[in-house]
Design a binder for these strands. Structure first.
Length: 191
DNA sequence: CAATAGATCATCT
DNA sequence: GATGATCTATTGC
């Protein structure tokens, strides 16, 4: 493995905003594919009406209220799946949407799964695109990302990163909050 | 280039 | 029965 150690559960046991910022630059790994996280969004729950968890515990949102470091994956627009990682201590809702990655391993697999992508920068520069490219589906709903097939690792060598906060994409409620985080100047963020 | 339509279904009202 | 944390192809300038 050309990456650093798997992130510990304590990493995720913080506010969703902190986890959203801290996940930038980390490495998402699924099977043979891997990519550097370059864009995230925080969904704190509670009074944030844009969060799925703001309407309470349902079959879909159950995992968001559980222990941190697990995958919340949901099906949207009849076609796409989006990957979140649960933050906050158990009992408190909150999660982070992974919106884009910079592919670093398994790029041929990603190309096969995303035939409509033109260049490498189009393989996973959006929440629906990255789950397709990496083969992530609702099968891993609730998966523990501190062990197993789907994990997040520290990068091989830490690099200095400049973070920019913007409004979240595609929501109608609370659209003014600056809860989307991107690596400044990175060309793999979504358009 | 920008704007828009269409695909397609789990979830919640 | 309407909606949605999206993406792609197509149309029009």
């Amino acid at each position: 493995m050309p990456f650093g150690p798997i992130l510990l559960r304590s990493f995720y046991s913080r506010s969703s905003v902190e986890v959203g910022r801290e996940l930038l630059g980390k490495v998402l790994v699924h099977g043979r594919t891997a990519g550097i996280i370059v864009e995230t969004e925080a969904y704190p729950g509670g009074d944030d009406r844009a969060s799925h968890s703001s309407r309470g515990i349902t079959d879909r949102t159950r995992v968001i209220f559980g222990p941190p470091g697990h995958a919340y994956i949901y099906f949207i627009y009849g076609m796409y799946e989006c990957l979140n990682i649960v933050a906050e201590p158990a009992g408190t809702p909150g999660c982070v949407l992974i919106r884009a990655i910079e592919p670093v391993a398994g790029i041929e697999s990603m190309r096969r799964r995303r035939p409509s992508a033109r260049g490498v920068e189009d393989l996973a520069n959006g929440p629906g695109k990255l789950t397709l490219a990496m083969g992530i589906t609702r099968r891993q709903y609730g998966a523990d990302v501190t062990r197993g097939e789907l994990v997040v690792r520290a990068p091989a060598e830490a690099r200095q990163i400049e973070i920019v906060a913007t409004p979240r994409v595609g929501i109608t409620h609370c659209a003014d909050r600056l809860l989307r985080f991107v690596i400044a100047g990175n060309r793999f963020v979504s358009k």
